[in-house]
Design a protein around this nucleic acid. Sequence first.
DNA 1: TTTT
DNA 2: TTTT
Lengths: 156, 156, 156, 156
Amino acid sequence: MSAGVNKVILIGNLGKDPEVRHLDNGATVANFSIATTESYKDRNTGQRVDQTEWHNIVLWRGLAEVAEKYLKKGDSVFIEGKLRTRSWEKDGVTRYTTEVVGDQMTMLGNKRGGSDDNNQDYSSNNNDSGMGRSQQTASAASNTPDTDSEMDDLPF
Amino acid sequence: MSAGVNKVILIGNLGKDPEVRHLDNGATVANFSIATTESYKDRNTGQRVDQTEWHNIVLWRGLAEVAEKYLKKGDSVFIEGKLRTRSWEKDGVTRYTTEVVGDQMTMLGNKRGGSDDNNQDYSSNNNDSGMGRSQQTASAASNTPDTDSEMDDLPF
Amino acid sequence: MSAGVNKVILIGNLGKDPEVRHLDNGATVANFSIATTESYKDRNTGQRVDQTEWHNIVLWRGLAEVAEKYLKKGDSVFIEGKLRTRSWEKDGVTRYTTEVVGDQMTMLGNKRGGSDDNNQDYSSNNNDSGMGRSQQTASAASNTPDTDSEMDDLPF
Amino acid sequence: MSAGVNKVILIGNLGKDPEVRHLDNGATVANFSIATTESYKDRNTGQRVDQTEWHNIVLWRGLAEVAEKYLKKGDSVFIEGKLRTRSWEKDGVTRYTTEVVGDQMTMLGNKRGGSDDNNQDYSSNNNDSGMGRSQQTASAASNTPDTDSEMDDLPF
DNA sequence: TTTT
DNA sequence: TTTT
């Protein structure tokens, strides 16, 4: 349950390879940034100006493992997720970082060849990351039994 | 896994009370229509014209039960789901119906009072429909053990 | 103004080349279908089953011209738009067709080579379809002055 | 044109009344925060925990004026927009703030009565804010002629 | 830091 | 009718 809706939909390119950490509790987390660019005409100069926005993406468990395995700098991805703002201290100053915690990801191609052949969608619910289901879930949350989605074998 | 993205986001009002069926296999399904209205200025007359679009919504299991219990004609809801077109025969003619299969629902208020007090979000993954979790899941898919989302007790 | 929200977000592949018509009033309209595929595990057989959904896309004016020029069978596109159900008579029977009227399109690559090089976004508001703005708008709605979006030269 | 997609969809409640500024160039800008709450079950305690996320909203021109006129602390709104991260200096430290720049808003009701009667949608393109169209646009960008959307008098 |  |  939750009050309200918190949804982000992005298509952009990775600025660098993902940074992936394997936590002590068995969970995997991936961090990377993707860029979206909007261009507009400057009122005064009449010139086209590109404005690039960088989005911090966080993926957990199965999605993080897919990112680790398949995503590289420059790749194009569709990310669906939610906004989350974290605060942290540095030099006695509280700082805030807003991230997009992804729960759905589709790889949209890269320049390494075979762009469309890799166009697949992953969600944080079903753990169909190509390495086999149980393996997938196990590495995402080691002490969680892989019975998380009996209902996703129904087409609705 | 899936190739592509199929997502619908609607906010509209129910034209009638939901029709709810309890299937033999224990599943519950709710059907209702919601209206969204767009107004535009007619080029010739200069008059404002309202154009109302009706959307056929289908909800399964826990969401259907929430709809049965709480949704009435006129209520405003947020629905997130996917498009699905079904075909059926009638008088030897194949007909098509496009529906929105909801996987997320938020009630946005009604005119019966208590609008905001009821503003709650439901998803087809967690079965938090107010009647208790196990009960909820049981009625949605009778022979499915209620272990569907050990991971939703993590805030990410 | 409009009451409610009516939004569709799709990523899929064209089943055929777009059908493009140039209307007498100067407007261009493009029609094509895109497929999204979801796969699920059949409860009884345990087999993976692919379920493909076909979406009827309609694009107007500038977007239609971009489609005419750049989209081909098999191409992958991101489409954002709204649902619209039309009714029409045939043999005395009223039939309904639900379409997605696109107002935003991003080409996500194809198999003809240069996938990412063509990854550009178009909207029904700015008419930046690569052939020059005024030209674009003129063909989209011949008797409409190209002053439609002075505000889109601001980056917010 | 733009490369990629940058879209945010929120439904939440205002934490305070909007702060509205009327700039020297005639533009109006509104800032406010809305909260979305997600609840999850803590693994260890088994308790339900509410996690509230605050989103910084920025609205310009017509939307800002609608916010100034109609939105109050506690009100529920639907916001569609895009993410934008700004940086600013303070005490020699660069700080970042991520905001949602809204381009669509629907008021979903309040506790002051008349919830549904006020359920209307506004966009940053058409300036239909109830005070009359030209007035609306004029205050949003004083030196911009009100010819911005001849095409929005077509229902597609 | 990406991409067009 | 596409795609993986």
